[in-house]
Design a protein around this nucleic acid. Structure first.
Lengths: 343, 343
DNA sequence: GTGAAAGCGCTAACAA
DNA sequence: TTGTTAGCGCTTTCAC
């Protein structure tokens, strides 16, 4: 069942069918209706490969997801998905490891599939101009920005929260409750990525409050797995490290931290306060509910898609959008009860 | 940068380049090396559209995910993904709503992208022979089977647990602890899908134990959202319905149920025991840890991919694999403490 | 408003 | 072992 069959069935040429089906204006309405009916009747489905080849484009956008086991990405992906569909674009996915090279993946992806643009969901923050060029299509960094790179702002788009500021806010919330010995749970302090940025915000908040930074309170997991977060926190408490609060840079790890605390016999928030960043659905159901800064996942995805489409269609220049979080009170944070001396 | 450029650069014809790049045997090794080097040097990336169009196939498999907000699917998807890649196939996704028509989506998908096969992740259980035909490519039902349909077993593959038996097992675990008033938390009792099947297993277990079925203990959410599960359970307790245990057909809903119980002031497992089915990562971190029957998500995905590839390549007939769950003890189940009279 | 025909980049006979 | 060539199904000039 090809366009030829439809043409034959209607007694017209293939070009007419093509025009009718693609909404070109230079077809009589009668003809268009006839062709559309025939196509439906014959169960005709255009061959995307042929169409893409002939038109040398594809109306498809790529979505490169880095570290796809992150439940935070789920709602974002769905928002991207549906926004793209609504805007008339197809979307293809590529998953890469959380330490993979999203630039290389995107570049290959764009070429192989003749993509019009790419959304990078999760990635590094240190792109060079050459990196951007290699992708060969407009791209938007979703959920992160390019804080450490020297890539000019005009060459890419981004949608994210202000990681430093939000981490600062989370840490400050703990400080305001009287906590002084505040641990941070993160992947790495120098991954040139989201983790490092949030670490910076944490340090800044401590500094502004006159609290001395203590390397022992940095719980570095190296991965984003819940199990390693659990082990780190468990180990810290078991080994007698003194602290009264944890700022976790991701909800998943915060949830694991709460469990670890419970398993040592301690209580949240009585003995330890916990705050996260993300606002994943699951963290609404912990006991107590996790206090966290909720990222607007839905708008983050939609915004990224919208921007990409606009840029692809030449309607706008590249843009950089910073979204705000909303604080979820939760029950996992409470006032510091006792003064803890440095260990 | 097309195959022509590579050919010109190497001073050979395009067919030689094509053969060299595609691993055909009838090319001298010298030539192959030369071509491959040139391709790399020139950053040549084949145009998939052209390749697919010319070869009238695509080495790509489709993955239709129904109800993609289900965290249970995540690890399964990744397993499918990586297994397909290892077997040399690309994979494209299509997400549909949890009440969408996966057959129609798959059929269109296969035609439009000339897919060699499809994996359906989540779906109904009542396919007809016509449904199968309409897809027009081999397909495997992943995480579900076709229990209610009249589709001959030879016409499709499936990988799943035995829903009735596992639900029976979960319910029986509660009964063995002395519970008699056991509620079930599910989407629907007659959706011709996973929910209905697990409901059947629940009913059977009650019957075998001589426990009378009580419609009031069926908490039907209509959706798979955690919030509706929370509301149902909360509402049931608040309105005084008497029961001492809940079997939830999905971990997500079980987690929400535990929270609901806590919020009424009751305790798990002292006042209510909870057991789920799925074994999602998050449910390891509830307090107490959720007792559940863990589905082998990884093998489920790998198996589905492997079967599909085998069938596509004509190596085997369609297959039906039933995987076993492993019980996670958890701390959410305990002995029934008091005798509860029917409300 | 419609048709004829030239490709898009690649694969796969068929020749050589 | 390599080259020549005819399409794959579609879009898109360019005539009419």
């Amino acid at each position: 069942m090809t366009i030829k069959d439809v043409a034959k069935y209607c007694g017209v040429s293939v070009s007419t069918v093509s025009r009718a089906l693609n909404g070109h204006p230079d077809v009589s309405e009668d003809m268009r209706a006839k062709v559309i009916d025939a196509a439906r009747l014959l169960h005709y489905v255009p061959n995307r490969s042929a169409r893409d080849l002939a038109s040398n484009q594809s109306d498809t956008l790529g979505l490169v997801v880095r570290g796809s086991t992150n439940p935070f990405f789920d709602p974002v992906m769905h928002a991207i998905e549906s926004e793209c569909n609504e805007l008339g674009y197809g979307i293809v996915h590529r998953y890469i490891a959380s330490d993979g090279d999203e630039i290389a993946a995107a570049a290959e992806f764009v070429q192989a599939k003749r993509l019009k643009g790419v959304i990078l969901l999760g990635g590094r923050f240190d792109y060079s101009e050459e990196d951007a060029k290699s992708i060969g299509a407009p791209f938007v960094c979703c959920s992160y920005s390019n804080h450490f790179g020297d890539l000019p702002k005009e060459e890419y788009s981004s949608v994210s929260i202000n990681d430093i500021a939000e981490a600062y806010k989370a840490t400050k919330a703990l400080i305001d409750l009287g906590h002084r010995r505040i641990a941070i749970l993160l992947f790495s302090t120098d991954d040139k990525s989201i983790s490092q940025l949030r670490f910076d915000g944490y340090c800044q908040a401590l500094k502004d409050a006159g609290i001395e930074f203590d390397r022992n309170l940095v719980f570095e997991t190296g991965t984003l797995s819940m199990s390693s977060a659990y082990e780190k926190v468990r180990g810290a408490i078991d080994s007698g490290i003194q602290f009264s609060a944890i700022f976790s840079i991701a909800d998943t790890m915060a949830v694991a931290a709460m469990k670890a605390i419970f398993d040592t016999g301690a209580k949240v928030p009585d003995d330890y306060s916990v705050i996260g960043i993300d606002g994943i659905e699951m963290s609404l159901y912990t006991i107590p509910t996790l206090a966290t800064l909720c990222q607007p996942q839905e708008s983050m995805g939609r915004e990224a898609a919208r921007i990409l489409v606009d840029v692809v269609e030449g309607k706008t220049k590249n843009q950089h959008v910073r979204l705000k979080t909303t604080q979820r009170p939760g029950g996992s944070m409470g006032p510091a009860k006792k003064v803890i001396l440095a260990s």
